[in-house]
Design a protein around this nucleic acid. Structure first.
Lengths: 185, 185
DNA sequence: ACCTGAACACCGTTCAAGT
DNA sequence: ACCTGAACACCGTTCAAGT
């Protein structure tokens, strides 16, 4: 007599993402996830191997979503520079919408750190647009320069390092402009 | 009849830092810390309010150490540019020596996030050297640009985002040079 | 074939009792 | 005054028994 499935792996991961954003990674308990999807905690082990695997899946899903939003942003730009600006703004919008997940993706070394290959995939649109802007030879260095600044700016913003002064929107626009000027041939 | 003190708050925090670096934040259990300092877990509550407070203290101590190393690096430079290079290299050395702690300092929003004022203090030497290099008016924007790039580069390196290609040392030197060129008047 | 209650190990935390 | 064993609540995980 087969029992009906009362939830899905996707629903479990989505619930995990919501809990993580609402209460931080520490709030991700199997019981909280189970309650959210409407089953008892032991049933979750039919969907995920355990709490650590669920957290890793949450991080992977967050990175996948970021990757697809960056690809979409790149499609929206008309020239290489416009694509890079759109990618940077999409990244910032994502980090503000899902600050905890974004922080976990680039967070301290840990068991749930994302697959480096998935990180590389997410970075592809930025690398392609950069290549278009500066040419093959300088593309990797320039993309790293831009990516490092972008991630550093967002991490510092989320950490509250900019709380002391000035207009953060303006600082972002200013920094992006300076970085693009620095890499443009 | 007073009982002798068998440990100190500093020893508890130092043990916590060592455990965090060795096994990640998840390895920080009260039992592991107690074992390391030679007491039973309940005794730790005479030194710290609890596990969360201990993790916050670990992060704060990590940030304090980083701050003092950055101040020392700034003293070693001969001119403003040299001081900035020394500060950037000291930051990188610190992040490689204490990757987990460094990641926690700038990590995702969480209860143990460091005090923004302490972050500002740590950034002071960099801000001062930048002011010397570019003048009062542009100092804050330029310091943010440099700090964001520096932190972003280190976070990506620790996250393994640079694993795919090239010489990371050279990429660091290249990026630093480009950033300094971008902010120099 | 998935779901559940019960059970177990582990961890954070409290506290009365020791010295 | 600090230390400890015992106790409790909570969480991750396993598993036999249900449907």
């Amino acid at each position: 007599m087969p029992a009906p499935e009362r939830t899905t792996t996707d629903a479990v991961i989505a619930a995990g993402r919501a809990i993580v954003e609402e209460g931080g990674a520490a709030a991700l308990t199997m019981q909280a996830v189970a309650e959210r999807v409407g089953v008892r905690a032991p049933s979750l082990y039919k969907r995920v191997a355990g709490r650590d695997a669920l957290l890793a899946a949450v991080v992977a899903a967050t990175l996948d979503e970021l990757a697809s939003e960056l690809a979409a942003a790149a499609d929206a730009g008309t020239d290489a520079r416009g694509r890079l600006v759109a990618i940077a703004e999409a990244t910032r919008a994502f980090a503000r919408r899902a600050p905890v997940g974004y922080g976990l993706v680039f967070g301290p070394p840990s068991p749930q750190a994302p697959d480096p290959a998935a990180l590389a995939t997410a970075a592809d649109p930025l690398l392609a647009a950069t290549r278009e802007l500066v040419g093959d030879e300088d593309a990797l260095d320039a993309a790293r320069l831009l990516t490092a600044w972008l991630h550093g700016f967002l991490a510092m913003d989320l950490a509250g390092a900019f709380r002391l002064g000035g207009d953060v929107d303006a600082a972002f626009a200013y920094g992006l402009d300076r970085i693009l000027a620095a890499i443009e041939p």
